[in-house]
């Protein structure tokens, strides 16, 4: 345990440590292409770059905020009570979902009030996000990092941001590829979802290369 911690890339200076967390969350542990979470909007909202951009931004924002809130909930409430026999592992699933749902509701209200333009550009994607498993996934993976070692609020922030950016990169890549595919040249049976899944699979294989680079 101690030996593993000693060799962890998290031991460097703070900036280095945060950078490592960010890159690892965004690239090596890309929530979409290595974990296959959030596939549903990934496939259906990647037809146009513009929609993909809006959805991606919304995911970045919500993931960052909910990971931090859920980190606080876990680190300050659930984990300290675990020694008393509290089933933190089961409870976190329920509570994280509630937090995400409430946060999305709150954001929808706030954005409509603050910027009606932004509300229409991004707000319409917000309700879809409540049920995006990538968001919940980011919070749950964050917990697996907290349980083994010190993982502070800044770490959680960078982790959540990284996970969101990873999802954003993936959907933008897919939308870019899809907008360049000439549907005519695809065999009829593979048009639409078929070719999209193949593209996503090839992208996932490409991301496997990053796997060995950093290990949290």
């Amino acid at each position: 345990m101690i030996a593993e911690l000693a060799s962890s890339p998290l031991d460097g200076p703070l900036v280095m440590r945060l950078l490592v967390i960010f890159v690892s969350a965004a690239v090596t542990e890309n929530i979409l292409l290595t974990r296959f979470l959030g596939m549903c909007p990934f496939l259906s909202i990647s037809r146009q770059m513009r929609s993909a951009f809006g959805m991606g931004l919304a995911v970045v924002f919500v993931t960052t905020c909910t990971v931090v809130i859920n980190w606080a909930l876990y680190a300050y409430v659930l984990k300290p009570l675990e020694p008393y026999g509290l089933p933190a592992e089961s409870l976190k699933l329920i509570l994280f979902i509630v937090v995400i749902a409430a946060f999305v509701q709150f954001m929808e209200m706030a954005i409509e009030r603050i910027s009606i333009r932004l509300y229409f550009a991004l707000g319409i994607f917000l309700p879809l996000i409540t049920v995006n498993c990538a968001i919940l996934g980011a919070s749950l993976f964050m917990v697996t990092h907290v349980s083994g070692r010190q993982f502070g609020g800044w770490d959680a922030l960078l982790y959540g941001f990284g996970a969101g950016v990873g999802w954003f990169i993936a959907i933008m890549l897919l939308a870019g590829v899809r907008s360049r595919i000439k549907e005519d040249s695809v065999p009829a049976a593979l048009r639409g979802p078929g070719i999209t899944l193949i593209v996503a699979g090839i992208m996932a294989m490409a991301f496997v290369i990053f796997q060995g680079m950093i290990k949290l």
Binding site: L78, L81, L86, P87, L91, V98, V99, A102, Q105
Partner: peptide
């Protein structure tokens, strides 16, 4: 305790909303 925490979190969130 588990029920209490769940209720408390949900209540706080509902109140905030």
């Amino acid at each position: 305790l588990a029920a209490g925490i769940s209720c408390a979190v949900t209540t706080v969130l509902a109140a905030l909303l």
